[in-house]
Design a binder for these strands. Structure first.
Lengths: 209, 209
DNA sequence: TGCGTAATACTCGTCTGCGAGTACTCGTAG
DNA sequence: CTACGAGTACTCGCAGACGAGTATTACGCA
């Protein structure tokens, strides 16, 4: 039980907003959304209330008041506690300081790319490349637009994302090059395997690693 | 309901092994583990049986026999169906062809790096850089060792991972550079904020984007 | 003034993921 | 020859995640 008391990243997001001022859950979601954080961490309504309740259970936030404002449903406003502040900082420290690498799904796909023939593989990789290009472009545009409005520090995540997107695009382009020019060794063996369904006779490679 | 009938990636892994020959769940896990796939997709025993059951429910695999071999607990052996084959290929196609980008936790950390002061940020980033270096090194070693034993095609995922790790390391190094040389604009405002806890007066940036 | 639609602020129940057990067996060191 | 630890092959139950629903109010507009 070395695990974080509240494991959901949404909890981190909640802490980050409630740090500024007390809020009720719905407002947290609204603020997060409006700041564009929901692009990185999609807000699930179902989880929000569970997560806030958990944060409360562990003493990271506490209920301040229950306002019956106008005729609207009753809202419970939460405030961050000192323990919550600590937890938040510590969490950020962990996130920044350690690479845990939840393995990207693309990697799983790559490791099984064999089942598609080379031709399908090429097609799919082209699609991916296109999407990566669009994503990079969108980030560049966002940066350009935001740069004059915000301190650099608040844009660093976008710069990072852009850098990584470009890196991936570069890699995919390189791999694609190898596939299309036929530079990748074993390309025809691959094609033969995919068409006939049978391996060449070099299967001894499974036992090791 | 556009979602995949069995959503868990572990399902993909199961399909990928059961494609070669019929197996019982425990054996699937063993094979996966022994091939080192468990580095990318940690096998959770709890999920394995649920996932296999689900695959069966949707007709992607079917039970072949229940062997009572020796005195061991009874094992149910599963075989892939044609539908399972299709599902598998389609899944791989999706994985390779579309970038869905489950947002890296590091990005979340970066977007909140403000709460750590610049000094702590620097420390943590140094740690990360070190870990990235180790990871890259490990991958390079693995590649060198495996290259003569396996066709290139089976190493492509590792090459990809290496490329991405290096890219991240490069980015972190660059950012760290800016922080340590003081090239990052607003660095002292940041330090002041962290020490005193109060913002400079430019808060108008929250409302837009 | 009446009506449809959007926004507000949740609640509920299902379904999944998975950690922690369980029970049996085999090899082997003493 | 027997006790013990490591492997084998699962089962169970709970905690969390999340979609879909609900009830109320505000607001545009014809």
């Amino acid at each position: 039980m070395k695990r974080r008391k509240v494991g959901n990243v949404l909890g981190l997001a909640v802490l980050s907003v409630v740090l500024e001022r007390p809020m009720h859950p719905y407002e947290m979601a609204a603020v997060l959304k409006q700041r564009g954080k929901d692009a990185d961490l999609p807000i699930k309504w179902g989880s929000l209330y569970t997560v806030v309740a958990n944060l409360e259970k562990h003493g990271f936030v506490e209920a301040v008041e229950s306002v019956k404002d106008g005729g609207r449903p009753e809202r419970t406003v939460y405030r961050i506690t000192p323990a919550g502040r600590d937890e938040f900082e510590d969490w950020v420290r962990e996130l920044v300081g350690t690479v845990d690498r939840e393995p990207p799904r693309f990697k799983a796909g790559l490791s099984m790319i064999g089942v598609l023939g080379p031709d399908q593989a090429i097609g799919r990789l082209r699609e991916r490349l296109e999407q990566l290009g669009a994503r990079a472009e969108a980030h560049r545009a966002a940066l350009e637009q935001l740069r004059p409005l915000m301190p650099r520090l608040f844009l660093v995540e976008v710069e990072y994302d852009l850098a990584m997107t470009e890196a991936e695009a570069r890699w995919v382009r390189g791999f694609l090059e190898e596939l299309t020019t036929g530079a990748l060794p074993g390309l025809d063996a691959w094609r033969r395997y995919h068409e006939t369904g049978e391996f060449p006779d070099d299967l001894g490679e499974f036992v090791e690693r």
